[in-house]
Simulated assay, not measured.
Amino acid sequence: MESTTTIMLRDLPREERPRERMLRSGAEALSHAELLAILLVTGTRKESALTVAQRILGQTSGLRQLADMGIEELIGINGIGPAKAVQLKAAIELGRRMAVSRVGDRVVIRSPRDAAELLAEQLRYLQKEHFVCLFLNTKNQVIAQETLSIGSLNASIVHPREVFRAAIKYGSASIVCAHNHPSGDPAPSPEDIAITKRLVESGRIVGIDVLDHIVVGDGHFVSLKEQGMM
């Protein structure tokens, strides 16, 4: 019977280990697997952290799907327990927040592009549709952001009641809605248009304007307001 030899991190020369390489050359010099291995800290009895990281990236088809996985899904991967799953989700969330963080005053939404630039990097890589709202004050400054649904965008998932309950909670004067198309094509679907019109009508009733609905694709976006679809 043919035997296999597993190379553990301790078997590698110190200068080739991910942590040592980062200290020497900086984080940008590391591969996705090496960065992931540092977050995992340890591997399994039979695999090094780097081997586990390589396997995870292979199983999840890369970073995009990994970023979209929930904690329970991560725990289902061999080599990831609850502690490691939480560490990974924390790192992913920090990355998302860094991508949209701004220095100084609150972000002001003056155009569809402002909203798209704020949300695109969060949404463009997700493998499921995420419906997000930006909640604005009377000066069109963003006072809050919340993901209100995850999954296929339809009337049963995105309900005006949930949207405006959140808007009232934050004391919003207006809102901008956005969601991603995992296909990468931001062209609005008939469902997107129908939901937008329903939200606009509900907003008129409660006195909170729906300024726009942005559909984010891979590197592109569509404003339903600009397209005259709301």
Rank of each mutant, 00 (worst) to 15 (best):
S202K: 15
P190V: 01
P190L: 02
E191C: 03
D218Q: 13
L211W: 01
L199I: 10
E226A: 13
H213D: 01
P182K: 05
D192T: 14
S223T: 07
H181A: 07
I214V: 08
P188H: 01
V210R: 08
H220K: 15
R204T: 07
S189Y: 04
R204L: 12
H213R: 05
P188N: 10
H220V: 11
N180Q: 09
L199H: 02
V222E: 12
V200C: 11
P182F: 10
K197E: 13
R198A: 14
S202I: 05
A178Y: 01
S183P: 00
E191N: 14
R198T: 14
K197I: 07
A194S: 13
E201T: 11
G203Q: 07
I195C: 01
F221D: 05
E226S: 14
L199D: 03
S202N: 13
E191T: 15
D185A: 03
I208S: 09
L199Y: 06
H220W: 12
I195H: 06
I214D: 03
R204V: 09
I193S: 02
I208M: 08
G217E: 12
G207N: 05
I208W: 09
A178W: 00
G219K: 10
S202Q: 15
G203D: 09
I214M: 06
R198K: 12
V216C: 04
V206K: 11
H181K: 08
I195V: 09
D212E: 01
G217M: 12
P190G: 02
